[in-house]
Design a protein around this nucleic acid. Structure first.
Lengths: 348, 348
DNA sequence: CTGAAAGCGCTAACAT
DNA sequence: ATGTTAGCGCTTTCAG
């Protein structure tokens, strides 16, 4: 059995088939004409030896690696794993591979990831920057000789094309919806305030609140269920308790809902709840939770498209991370009205 | 600005530093002694040029690629994305990269994936086989000259080490629990019956049912919410309706729960419900859903360990997919008793 | 301590 | 139509 055997090489195939290496190369790449007879002999040799071309050698000859790097905070996060799914599918349909590296939103880890991928000579990057404002990241990316697309969060300076959702709008819209329902004390539970997306959402919230002449109430200390429960308790027992809660990310929404339920607090009667990010069962729990839904699939899709446009247009391996007019795509979000905001289950 | 510039090479660094290529190679790999002065000059040149070693060239010299392939049905599936997260973390801590390829449980796609990864000369594989019984897959894997670990589903013949959960036990245990509650007509909603995991679970269910002298009722036609609702309706309106439902996978459990809720059927009064696979909010919806919980994190972790044991023990690049005693690790599941089975929310 | 030179497996001129 | 040959960027004897 051919277990421990190393990989056979092209010249071994050539020898076995009694032809030159060029000929073998030709039948593999199917480019130029080869006599049917010779071809058959070569293919037989390939079969017999179980030959598989060594990509490394091709790459060394100046060809691209046909791999792209995907640099994200976490692959366990449904948002990013869904993006990964579509990116992978599109990459594959173009005969490219995806290498995923996670950063936990840590800038140093992120820099390392980019460098590692560069050493592997990936042909392009899709990256969700840990820190959109980072000067270090920007200059690192700008000197890469391959196309890059920022996903979910832009890179400062707008020189890198990016595909992000309109976080400001999403949050503003949700907050206005709460205001229209008549809530006056709407507290915003933020999560990691250092992230671009969260900051944008906070801006949207504050804008809506202030335009309505209300007072913004920001609470940034929630990071898990325990802290959620603690904060909710504190808030609701305060002399001037909130009548609505707006949570800025998936996990926080769920923690908050669970805390509210455990504490026996009625939604939306005692406090209304609107969350950012849709999630499984959001429409099934009671009350069903009103959320801002992000176009996750589309984000991944557009990012992949943008990348491959560049990848496929630069024939050799050139292509630059910078284009004359890097596109900044901003996708719309959608407010899914369910019951937790005070809307009636069926109807307006 | 160094935008479009190609990558500088080692010999360019050498020239700039006024030394030989060997010396540069040495300071990069930090293996042999180099005069501090020379070293400084070289490192300066490296900095100045922004040099990054070309992995392809290293690989060609006979070194490993330090990449592993991860072949799974889908990366959007929380089960696999969580596995990917831990695999990636462990790989990275060993200075390895992970390339993810998805198969949608299609054997042809899977075969292609393995071949693509082989051409890229990955140093190892973690794979969740689309078809555990496939002779083709088995022989394909057995002739690979690199270590392989099967995840979640074994490869027929037990020659490939595998890390799977004890699906039989999990399902048997859950079914017995339902039987203990006194249910007599327990229907099993299966999902993709061609998968190893599902078949094992069906076996466990049938074993428990038959041991109790009951009649197994299998329903294999559910694949989305629509079909779930349809089947539930049909079942509950039949002359001899079930008094309990056992769903064999995550998505099916959720679809079933939603259908039951929409149809206004009381759980567990009218029908009890137990699901395979825990999920977000399973403990929060009303009633909270009793489930068989899989050790997802541990599965990924053990698989990664097994792979790296082999990877790290075969110094050069050898290592075989086959060992004298390929380990077949089977991990325990846990029945999480909540309310949907008839257990009282708090207490036994 | 350092350099020259031989390849790793493949492709692409250039011959034939 | 097919073979010969020169590298791609790097590591690694083998000398100096």
């Amino acid at each position: 059995m051919t277990k421990k055997s190393k990989h056979p090489t092209l010249s071994e195939v050539a020898k076995k088939a009694g032809v030159g290496t060029t000929t073998v190369s030709r039948v593999i790449n199917g480019v130029e004409r080869v006599e049917p007879k010779t071809m058959a002999r070569v293919q037989q040799a390939i079969q017999a030896l179980g030959y598989m071309p060594n990509q490394a050698a091709r790459v060394l000859k100046g060809h691209r690696t046909r791999t792209i790097g995907f640099v994200i905070p976490s692959i366990a996060d449904p948002f990013f794993s869904n993006c990964a799914e579509v990116l992978q599918a599109i990459a594959r349909s173009n005969d490219f591979l995806v290498i995923v590296l996670t950063t936990q939103n840590d800038s140093a880890t992120e820099r390392d990831a980019v460098n590692i991928l560069t050493q592997h000579r990936v042909d392009g990057f899709v990256i969700a920057p840990a820190d959109s404002e980072s000067e270090a990241l920007r200059s690192l990316l700008l000197r890469l000789p391959v196309p890059i697309v920022a996903l979910d969060r832009p890179v400062a300076g707008a020189l890198v094309p990016s595909v992000v959702a309109n976080n400001f709008d999403g949050a503003q819209h949700a907050t206005r919806h709460l205001i229209k329902h008549g809530y006056k004390r709407i507290v915003c539970l933020t999560g990691e305030i250092n992230l671009y997306t969260i900051r944008e959402r906070v801006r949207g919230y504050c804008d809506a609140i202030e335009s309505a002449g209300l007072e913004p109430i920001l609470e940034t200390s929630i990071h898990d269920y325990e802290s959620a429960e603690h904060v909710i308790k504190k808030l609701l027992h305060s002399p001037n308790p909130p009548d609505a809660i707006f949570t800025l990310k998936n996990r926080t929404t769920i923690d908050t809902f669970e805390a509210l339920q455990k504490l026996g607090i009625s939604i939306p009667k005692t406090v209304a709840l609107v969350g950012y990010d849709d999630f499984q069962l959001a429409g099934t729990v009671r009350p069903a939770i009103t959320v801002v839904q992000q176009p996750i699939y589309e984000l991944g899709h557009v990012a992949a498209q943008l990348l491959f446009e560049r990848l496929l247009s630069s024939p050799a391996s050139g292509g630059s991370g910078v284009t004359s007019s890097p596109q900044q795509v901003q996708l719309k979000t959608r407010l899914i009205r369910r019951s937790s905001c005070g809307c009636s289950p069926k109807g307006a």
